[in-house]
Design a protein around this nucleic acid. Structure first.
Lengths: 188, 188
DNA sequence: GTCTATAATTTGATAGAC
DNA sequence: GTCTATCAAATTATAGAC
């Protein structure tokens, strides 16, 4: 059986998606080119087109792969073994380690900010990502429901996404920590 | 005296900046081209280069102009005539009307998300924007200081920036309203 | 300030051989 | 599945006339 870690590269298609994601998270959809990807992967740009005919296909695949990885990383939102606070801490941890380990912010934050210029299939994939993450967070907040819970899923996701942008742009990770602490403080 | 409204266009340079900002807010730094701007303004691309030799010059100028306009729009953060809540409401209102009127999110949110791929002068201008807005918000929160105030400037700015991305990507402005309400609820 | 003209490079994409 | 070869279009940028 192959390595099932998220760093596993079982084929060229997977390598392409990994390289494309890194560039998209750094500079947006237009920051990736077929030639750059091909060079990094060690093939030619025509071969990248074989796996993903149009750039929109590549973009949508990158987002879908990213979505599955994030959802897997945050785990079950309704496991009664952990408290609401533990679940939200896990969500925060996923984003924190992404920033620290890769030095990159959320893919769908970068792409979501340029939604108006995205090919439809990519914009739809980004929208689906947020719908899933919002649903996860709603469930995490409500099972079991905390006593005087007033924080909403939208508030938590908004805070985390914005905090990544703020920390990246000002080169100050403290803003992320500060925001994360505020989220946890408001729970329970 | 010329019209001093933010819609005033006193010269070609100003027109160029206005068109460039609109495109950058929709799709990021790479979404603007000298040719597209020139066509919209009614001149040729070489003439755009006369006003802004390099694309980095254009980008930095767009961000600086945007920064000045936002700071002017939110007004004084330390006017004792209004409460902390009124000042933060004004900040929220600036972003809300930008989304509703123009259908665009904050320029520095879009550019901040792609900081790693931005020319240095542009990245620095974006960083300065956030530094100024954070300072404004800190002042707005502390003069006069509310009794049990625990919300920080970073939390407020993060929430607002992220809420715009979330609302845009999901086409659901309710997420912005929800987040804005949460911010105001946490004050005083 | 704006133009014409053009250079140099990069881009997404395709056809067809192997 | 990858390659060579190629294309048409778009990009930033400059030189020099008006």
């Amino acid at each position: 059986m192959e390595n099932t870690e998220h760093t596993a590269l079982t084929g060229k298609a997977e390598e392409i998606l990994e390289v494309a994601e890194r560039h998209m998270r750094a500079g947006g959809f237009d920051a990736v080119s077929f030639r750059d990807i091909a060079t990094e992967v060690g093939i030619k740009s025509a071969s990248v087109h074989y796996h993903f005919p149009q750039k929109a296909d590549l973009g949508a695949a990158v987002v879908q792969r990213y979505t599955a990885r994030v959802i897997a990383a945050v785990g079950a939102p309704d496991n009664s073994d952990d408290s609401t606070k533990e679940r939200i801490s896990r969500l925060i941890g996923v984003y924190r380690s992404a920033m620290i380990d890769d030095g990159l912010i959320c893919l769908c934050c970068v792409l979501g900010a340029e939604t108006l210029d995205l090919p439809d299939p990519v914009a739809e994939a980004v929208s689906s990502f947020f719908a899933l993450v919002l649903k996860w967070t709603e469930t995490a907040l409500s099972a079991p429901p905390a006593a005087g819970e007033t924080t909403t899923a939208a508030q938590i996701i908004s805070s985390l996404q914005g905090a990544m942008v703020l920390s990246l742009a000002t080169k100050n990770p403290q803003h992320f920590s500060d925001t994360a602490n505020g989220i946890l403080k408001a729970i329970d």
